[in-house]
Structure formats: structure tokens, C-alpha cells
Amino acid sequence: MCEEQKGRSIRLPMLGEKAPEFEAVTTQGKLKLSDFRGSWLILFSHPADFTPVCTTEFIGFAEIFDELQARNVQLMGLSIDSVYSHISWVRNIEEKFGMKIPFPVIADLNKEVASLYGMIMPGESKTETSRCVFVIDPDGILRAMVYYPLTTGRNMDEILRIIDALQTTDKHHVATPANWRPGEPVIVPPPPTQEAAEERLKQGFDCKDWYFCKKTLDE
């Protein structure tokens, strides 16, 4: 998991670790990753401005912006384009599609942030970032990473679902099953000891066996 950058080897970020700090020029001025502490952050990359799939994604991200705000989540985009290209593109999206882009977009012309986070997949393109999503929690810990190829636009429902799942996990100390949606039963973490396993079946959860128990959250 190493990336060569300017002759030196850097280790790519991994889940559960501090997301690497950076300072970058964005469409909303120079920002540091640490400026987002206290909020969740979805840092995402796109291949290039003025391309059709990326345009649909930016509209998609803008459409879920209010829902993300309600969950204390900020958004920040990135591509290897200039800030003037970004400004021109987001203005074009507003003009042609009627959608204002309310989040900052990093102009990563020197590929510094893209390299730091491993957003460039040389097998796909050496000059463009792939469709990467990094979910960073309010303490700056990298909590989820999702990578899509250049050809496949991301699913905004899944972005929201990941946020809901992570926030539910943090709040209730549970896990979430496949295809989970808010309001559905969650997984009670498996008991760590034989004694706890015997107790688990008496605790009133919906259990198939000692290791597979679900419960419904109260809220």
C-alpha cells in the first residue's frame, strides 16, 4: 500500500487511521483537512471537469447536500484541474442544469492530495483521479473508502447509507447487516466469551444462534 511521490515512498491511508493532513487550493479558498474537524467529511475525487459522468455526480452530490448537512457531514470534491476550470464548470452546471454546487472543490494540479490518498489508479489513467470516496469522521479518522472506475457514476443513496450506518454504529455500538437501511434491525456484536455467548440467548434479542443476534433500535 505504498505510492511513489517525488522519489519518496508514502504509505496510503488505511481505515481506522488518521486521515493525512493537507492544505489545498479550493473553489472556496485555501483549506486544510483539519478545518473540517468536528464535522464528518466526504472527500471525493472525480476524473475531470466538463465530463458527463462527473457532471451527473456533482449534481447528485449537490442534491444530497442538505441531507448530508442534517447529518453534520461536509463535502469536498477534488480533481487534477485548475481552480479556474472548477469555477467555470460549477458555473456551467448551474447555468445548464440549474444546480448550484455548494461545496468546495480542490484544484489538485500538482497531484499532491491525489497522491497522498492514492486516488490515481495508473491502470485506468495516469493523469486523472478515479472516483474515490473517503469518509472521515469528526476526529479526523478515515472510516470508509469506496472506489469506482472512471466509467461508473457513484450511487448517492449508498453514500448516505454509509454515513447513516457509521453514525448508527458510533451511537449505539452495533453493526449493520447487508443492505441495511435506517429503522431496520441492527446486529448485536457477537459475544467475546463462552459465558457471554450463553447469556446472549437470554437477553431478549432476535437470535438465530449465539453469534447472530439482531435488535431494533428505540429511536
Binding site: G29, L31, K32, G38, Q74
Partner: peptide
């Protein structure tokens, strides 16, 4: 305003 914008602005 979101915190991140205020923090960036204060630094400037």
C-alpha cells in the same frame, strides 16, 4: 457559515 469556512478565513 460552516466551521471549515470560518477556520480557513480566520487563518487567512
Amino acid at each position: 457559515l460552516p466551521f471549515f469556512r470560518v477556520r480557513g478565513g480566520l487563518r487567512d
